[in-house]
């Protein structure tokens, strides 16, 4: 059960002079749901394309379900991929798109397609030309899961969806999770809607993974510390980050619950208070801390 379904060793990718990914090594074990957290332009989409074997890495080894990326499309048969900007042939209807796609996959499951379409309220006869963003997203979701893949690569699966359709897509995603040991890598700027689903959160920044933590741990050990500085500090305590300050009053946060008593003991703060950090703030803080040190 703990075998690695996705394995990356030393993956490097640059576009011209600009280095996007630098020596990334990571493994995803079977049945894990990984949330990829990064700010814009930090290489999320590039990583997804490399995983789906749509882009060739400059260097490094990529293996997905034991198949290494060679540009042959063997990987794409085994994974379900939602691109950041789904696009389909303009002259087709949703049904025709699905029919075209079905030819590429041996396991294409039409009963599942019809069920999914009904669940997420997707009209099979709507035309791709001038299709709304919601229709595109929903079609992409059906395409990604119709062949019962073992891995889902979801690059912003819910962007552009209204709350109702978003919920229906998320419901069917959870439905996928229950059917088998599905491995999922998902990126989303509204990570809070996925909080109950994720097992792990990975922070990607400057081309490498800066931080990797389990969701449950993250939720339970994020704290906000407020208080008044007794005297100016040379540097913040290890593992503590500043969120804001107002004169002597500081707002700190930490992702490690063991740090709270350390700060308390160090007596740096007067009238110190500690409260759990709401998850939305925690994600933002995580991004601020690890996501953009070049800013």
């Amino acid at each position: 059960m703990t075998e690695a379904t996705i394995r990356l060793v030393d993956v490097t990718k640059s576009f011209g002079q600009k280095q996007i990914l630098y020596r990334i090594s990571a493994t995803v074990t079977r049945g894990t749901v990984v949330g990829l957290l990064a700010r814009n332009g930090q290489g999320k989409t590039t990583l997804f394309k490399i995983l789906a074997d749509l882009l060739q890495a400059d260097r490094g080894e990529i293996s997905v379900l034991g198949v290494s990326a060679d540009g042959s499309g063997a990987i794409r048969k085994k994974v379900g991929y939602i691109p950041e900007h789904p696009s389909f042939h303009n002259f087709m209807t949703v049904r025709q798109v699905l029919q075209l796609r079905s030819g590429f996959y041996r396991n294409w499951d039409w009963t599942k397609v019809y069920k999914l379409c009904a669940n997420i309220d997707l009209d099979l006869n709507s035309k791709m030309l001038q299709a709304s963003k919601g229709t595109l997203c929903k079609t992409a979701w059906v395409c990604a899961s119709a062949h019962n893949p073992e891995i889902l690569l979801l690059d912003e699966p819910t962007s552009g969806l209204d709350p109702v359709s978003r919920d229906s897509v998320l419901h069917s995603l959870v439905g996928e999770l229950t059917h088998q040991d599905m491995t999922v890598v998902v990126a989303n700027h509204h990570m809070e809607e996925l909080i109950g689903i994720l097992d792990e959160v990975w922070v990607l920044s400057e081309g490498t993974f800066k931080h990797r933590l389990s969701m449950e741990e993250f939720r339970r050990s994020s704290f906000r510390i407020t208080g008044r500085l007794r005297k100016p500090l040379q540097s913040l305590p290890v593992g503590v980050y500043e969120e804001g300050r107002d004169g002597d009053w500081v707002r700190w946060f930490t992702f490690n619950s063991e740090i709270v008593p350390v700060v308390q003991k160090s007596n740096a703060l007067e009238r110190m208070q500690c409260e759990p950090l709401p998850i939305k703030d925690a994600i933002k803080s995580l991004l601020l801390t690890f996501g953009a040190e070049n800013e």
Binding site: V33, D167, L170, H171, V174, G175, L177, T178, H179, E193, G196, I197, L198, D199
Partner: peptide, 15 residues
């Protein structure tokens, strides 16, 4: 059932 509740709450079935 586990799948039903997971889907209803949009939670990971493992939880």
């Amino acid at each position: 059932s586990v799948p039903q509740l997971a889907e209803e709450l949009v939670l990971n079935p493992k939880i």
